[in-house]
Design a protein around this nucleic acid. Sequence first.
DNA 1: AAAATACTGAAGTATTCACTTGACTATTTC
DNA 2: GAAATAGTCAAGTGAATACTTCAGTATTTT
Lengths: 110, 110
Amino acid sequence: MSDSKINIDRLFHALGDPTRRAMLDRLSQGPVSVSALAAPLGITLTAVAQHLQILEECGLARTEKLGRVRTCRIESAGFNALEQWIRNHRTLWERRLDRLGAFLAEEDEA
Amino acid sequence: MSDSKINIDRLFHALGDPTRRAMLDRLSQGPVSVSALAAPLGITLTAVAQHLQILEECGLARTEKLGRVRTCRIESAGFNALEQWIRNHRTLWERRLDRLGAFLAEEDEA
DNA sequence: AAAATACTGAAGTATTCACTTGACTATTTC
DNA sequence: GAAATAGTCAAGTGAATACTTCAGTATTTT
């Protein structure tokens, strides 16, 4: 999954779910099997597999099956895409917020 | 809306919708009325008002009604909360991704 | 005062979402 | 080779989501 192919809609949607964020936190400590990932979550294996697919689709995770075990890891592409989006928008927004701040300061003076 | 009260679930969810992101882009150029905000979007005023409420709820926008016109602006709280989340997680994830990189490099050597 | 403007509120609808169940397929382990 | 393990597939369910329409309610404008 290359950084540029990532759909920002799906990326934000993926990160909007607490279960998926919990999965990412777990993955940030090292690779795990699907079962190990599911264990603390209190939902079925199937549900976890579905979440995993969503995380893979937007470059937040990567999995690989060896024998009967699928190993899951975090991937940087999604995270990079998010940071890219923020960089692109911060400039735009900050400029506006600065102008807003200046405007309010002027109002206070008057 | 103070930065700390923002629900990260709702924040990501809010940003996951392209219409809402378009609204934010418009707002980053300056304050507008609800009608002006709705005009280029091709959806009803009602729908825009609903999106606005979501943006307000997670500190991405702020509105104020004077007479019959409601004026909308971007707010920094939501954006700050997003950056905070990223800062908190980048450290965690990067550490992992670094270890992953090192591991793969070792594998290449072997 | 009448007409136009700028929303607001309540209710409905189609789609998507998170999740489940239950049957199934590979792969190990014993 | 039988039993356990690890995951997969297809189908279904209830709740949430992004809309819509239609009937208001304030405010301006003329």
